[in-house]
Structure formats: C-alpha cells, structure tokens
Design a protein around this nucleic acid. Structure first.
Lengths: 341, 341
DNA sequence: TTGAAAGCGCTAACAA
DNA sequence: TTGTTAGCGCTTTCAA
C-alpha cells in the first residue's frame, strides 16, 4: 500500500480511505489513488485488513454432505446470493460430524468469516455460542425449541400436510411415511426438528381426513439415505400384500431410492402406488418416473438466510431477539403420483 | 496469547513455540502451556498467524456449479481428503464465469489459502499465474498444451475408448456421440480439453473397429446440461428413423437427460438403443434404467490432487516442472446398455 | 531452552 | 480534506 500511496502522492492512510471509498476523500484524490492501485495491480492483504478491522468480507456456509443433491443445491443457491451482495462465499462440509462442526466454527467461522450460515447437526446452541465468538450465525432448520440464533426454516409442517393431502386427492387411502417415526412429532427432542415438523404435518392432514394414523405406517430409517430407502423398497415389495397405495418420503433422495428399490422387485410407481418426496431436488424432474415433491424454494431460502445475516452484520441492535423465517414451498405434481383412481 | 503465557508462566514466544509443537521447548514447559491454553479456551487468531507467517492451514477448492452432481461429488471428495491431512478445506463456486474465477483467485486463494485446487473455466494460465501470487495451484483437467501448473486429469481418452468399445460389444453399430463435435479432437484449442480427449478416445475405438466416424454422428450442445440433452432426446425420437442404436454421452448428466427426453417420446433405453455416460455420478446408480458409465475414481482423483498440492507446499524445489497425473476410471455396466443382441 | 523485541500490512483515532 | 501514529495478535530472529 505504501507503493500505491507514493505513486498517488498521498499518505498510506489516505490511500486506505480512498481505496475503500470513504467519503471524506476528495474525488480527485480518490481517482489518483485508484489509478495508482490499478497500475501497480495492488489488492489489499486480507489477513492484515481482517486482523486490524475484524472484517473480511467473507461469509461462510457450513453444511452436511456436499455430495448429496439437496445440500449441494442449497449451498450453491446461498453462495450465489452472497456473491450477489458483493461478498465472498466459502462453503464447508460438516459431514454430519460434531468434530468437523466444532472445527469449522473454531478455526474458520469465528476467525475468518464475518458471519456464517450454518446447518446444525449434532452441536448444541451453547457450544455454537461459545465457538462463534460473537460472530453472527444464521441456522438452517434450527431444531431448538428456544431459538438463540436467527434461523430460516423449511416449511416442514405445511409441506408435509400438502404432500399427504395430495396423496389423498389422488385416491390413496393406505398411506405410508418413510424416514420417520410417528412419535417424532411429539418427542420433546425431535419435535421441532425437520423430521418432527414433517411428521406433524402428515398427522394433521390424516386427522382432518378422518384417517387414523397407525405407528406401523411410519417406516423409520437409520439415515436419510437413498440406499437405505432402496433396501426398504425391496422389503416392502416382498411382503405378500402391498400395505400402501401411497407413500410420503421425508426427502426426495429417499423417494428416488424407494422407487428404484420397488422397481427392482417388480412394483412400479405410479402404477402400483403413488410416491411424494420433499425438497425439490433437480434430479426429481428427470427421473423416470418424474417425482412429485414438495419443493422448497431455494432462492427464497437463500435470500432470507443472507438477509438475516446481513441485518445482523449491519445491526445497530445486537441484542434484538433472534428472528425465525420460513422459506416458501410448493407442491410440484409429476408422474410419480399420476394414478388412475 | 499473552494470557496463556502468563497462565503458564512463560513468555509469549515460548507459548507460541509450545503451541505449535516446536521441538526446542522442553516437554514439561509445553505441557504447562497446552494446559493453560485449554483452560483459557485459547485458539490462535488466524488472521494474525497468517499475516505474520504467510500460512493459514487452509486449502481452497474452486469449482464450477456446485449444484451439478459431478462437481459436487468431486469437491466433497477433495474436501474430505484435505481434512484427512489435518487442514481446513473451503469450497468456492466459480459458476463458470471468468469474473468469479478472477475474484476467487485474487481475494481468497492468493490471500488466504496456502494453496488451491482449481478447476479452470475461461481463465488463462498467464492470468492464473499472476493472480495466484506465488501460491501453488493444482488444476483439474487442465486444458493447456503446455502445462504451467500441476494438474490431475480424468482419463478422457481411455475412458471414452472403453465406452465406445462397450457399445460395440453390446452389438451397437450405429453409434452417436452427444455433447461434442468430431472436430474437437483436432481443434488446436479444444484438443487437450476434456471434450477433445473424450472425442479422440471415441474415434480411436471406432477406427480400430473399422467403423468410419461421420461428422453428423456427433451431436454438439451449447452447454453440458441435462435439459439440453432432454431436448435433444425429443428431437432424436421425433426423426422418423432412429439414426443410432448406441449413444455415448460426454457426461452422466447428459445421459440421464437424454434418456428422459427419449422416454418422453416413446423411445426406451435400453430397449431401443443403448446409452453410456461418463463421470460415475451417484444418481446414475438409482436411475431407471440405471446408467452404464465410465466412472472416474473420485477418491483417487482427490488423493492425487491433494498430494500434488502438499508436495508443492512442502517443496524444497519450487522450480521443478509441473506434474500431470491421471485419475483412475472404470467401466461400470448397468441397465442402460443391457441389450439383447 | 527461553525471553525480548521487531514487524507482517493494514485501519482508525486523532491531530493538523 | 489529509497526514501521523499506534496498534490488531502473532511469529521469528537474535540474544541470553
């Protein structure tokens, strides 16, 4: 920077101000400095700036497996949104391991990022608060009953309710749910989780339709993983009498795995039963059959998350209570529920 | 750090050495320092460390669209590999825009990362060299004729040759190629690109089989995008006589889009023609029909890329010529080529 | 084996 | 409107 200042015949401080567009600097001076900077191909040292000012212009995005479609598409959308605000986005993978979550918060988020959009796995609010070290965090699908951080939620309750409503509208009467326990909607720990809210939505619609939900209609899985759903499909198809004519899966990946598993055993969707997913991943559109789903509006989610973070960053009032917004979602009807009643 | 030093009753310098495991510090002293650090929940300030030492322990991964399966799965693998070496990985999206590529190199890579694994889009070697500012770069599928940086390649030539060989083995005689021009293998600019190498592989196998390649069997697309392939599928299916009995697609995403497009017009894979993709994305496994593909070994690619970067980082000899390695790949035969001859 | 002290490149308070 | 100057928290040279 000294070189730039010398070239522009000003002091280092003036150069610093001019480069960052401080209004106190005269237009003419600023122009001279910018010219000099361009000429010398100068760009400010991030470490030094960050050390001194505590700001880096970098926003972190921390999310579980990036090789799964939903988190990948979500973080891509958030990253674009951050760039649109002139900041740099860096994405990190928590791999659903607490150790990685802690390490990211401790070594990158709190150190380097002005703020982070975080998809919490097994870490607690207390741990986050300590590790974030005062840097603002916006959580995606925060499962806490008492929010401590700003968060953006997916519309689990409304979405699942719509999904089951749609299955009923398609004429389904024996509805199964894949990826959760019926008890998840009442369990104090699971209740506010993605899973709990989606189950609650299912139950609401079933109840409204006068259908009694039964525990055995909820098929839990150890992980939300397409391979597990595929195995479940085999298992379901092999039971002598198919117990369901419609299935709601907690995620699109589960739905696609399930459809594949059923297919491998001769049960076809939508011919033999209807399937609805949740998330709206791109893959569902070109799958055969294409997947009916509750599609979360990822642009909307990204916008709300980034806006919440920027509000905190510019925030005059650091102590205002955490906000909680919900991303839009809509039912996208495709082939997987195209049943002749 | 002063606090830690005081707590451990040593000087700040000693604390610094002890924390980083310098051998000069007596075991006993080190233990005292580590204990103090833990007690005070101290962790070193990244900006300060990086400003002073020029090292951050962070490796960058810059890749085009993260919402596409192949780059997402690749960067996830690289990120895990970096973590396995005890370093932090940050992923950035170039969105295939030169502006983003420049911005990432200028503001993050050269400033913050000890090195970067970079998937070049439209940026030139000269620009990278200037922007990287001495920080090592490892390129993924570097298209340059004269490499300037270390790089890891996918086995485009061998893979494509295998793919077409497999189509021939399945009894296909009228083979189409989707996503490239025949001229790409000879065009001086495209020749070393992913596209050019894959086309060259096709041509080699065809020639060896005594089949003359025709320009019109190569169906170019503006972008490697599933939607474009889907449209192409419509178009192909609508021609009175299906011109191909086997198609090799430049990528799995193209293959899935194409199969879907054909399906929408009543042409079924593999019944009416066989399709092979390239990349080995997870989605191909559970698609209906499951996709035969040339699967790039992503773990191998990640390992080679990270090893090359670490070698440069520890490198005694900064001037040794750039290395170029190739990731393994294998033919994975699935339903999309299961034809009765 | 440890400590004192300089300084990485920048920003921001203060002075002019 | 611009310049002077004191650090931000750490690492590393040099001296003890």
């Amino acid at each position: 920077m000294s070189d730039v200042a010398k070239e522009a015949q000003v002091s280092r401080a003036t150069a610093s101000y001019a480069l960052r567009g401080d209004t106190r600097i005269a237009d003419d001076t600023r122009r001279r400095v910018l010219l000099a900077a361009r000429k010398l191909r100068y760009s400010a040292n991030l470490s030094a700036r960050s050390l001194r000012s505590g700001k880096s212009g970098i926003i972190g995005v921390a999310i579980f497996e990036l090789d799964k479609p939903y988190p990948a598409q979500m973080s891509a959308a958030i990253s674009r949104q951050i760039n649109a605000h002139g900041m740099q986005a860096i994405i990190q993978q928590t791999s659903n391991s607490k150790q990685d979550e802690v390490s990211i918060l401790r070594h990158v988020t709190s150190q380097l990022c002005d703020g982070t959009i975080f998809s919490p796995g097994s870490i607690t609010n207390e741990e986050m608060q300590e590790l974030a070290d005062g840097k603002p965090l916006v959580l995606l699908d925060d499962p806490s009953a008492e929010p401590v951080f700003d968060s953006v939620m997916t519309a689990g309750f409304e979405g699942a309710a719509m999904a089951v409503r749609h299955l009923l509208d398609c004429g389904c009467r024996r509805i199964g749910v894949v990826g959760a326990d019926m008890a998840d909607s009442t369990d104090p720990v699971q209740r506010h989780s993605v899973r709990g809210r989606r189950v609650a939505g299912c139950l609401k619609t079933l109840k409204a339709a006068g259908i009694e939900a039964r525990r055995e209609d909820f098929l839990s899985l150890d992980r939300w993983d397409g391979e597990m759903a595929r195995d479940l499909g085999h298992h379901l198809a092999d039971t002598t009498d198919l117990p369901f004519d419609g299935i709601f899966c907690m995620t699109d990946s589960l739905a696609l795995g399930l459809i594949r598993g059923l297919h491998e055993c001769g049960v076809e969707v939508p011919r033999d039963l209807a399937v609805v997913g949740f998330d709206g991943i791109q893959e569902g559109e070109s799958y055969i059959p294409s997947l009916t789903t509750i599609s979360t509006d990822k642009e909307d989610l990204a916008r709300k998350a980034v806006d919440a973070l920027l509000a905190r960053l510019q925030g005059d009032d650091d102590n205002r209570p955490p906000t909680r917004t919900t991303a839009g979602c809509r039912l996208v009807v495709r082939e997987s529920t195209a049943r002749i009643r």
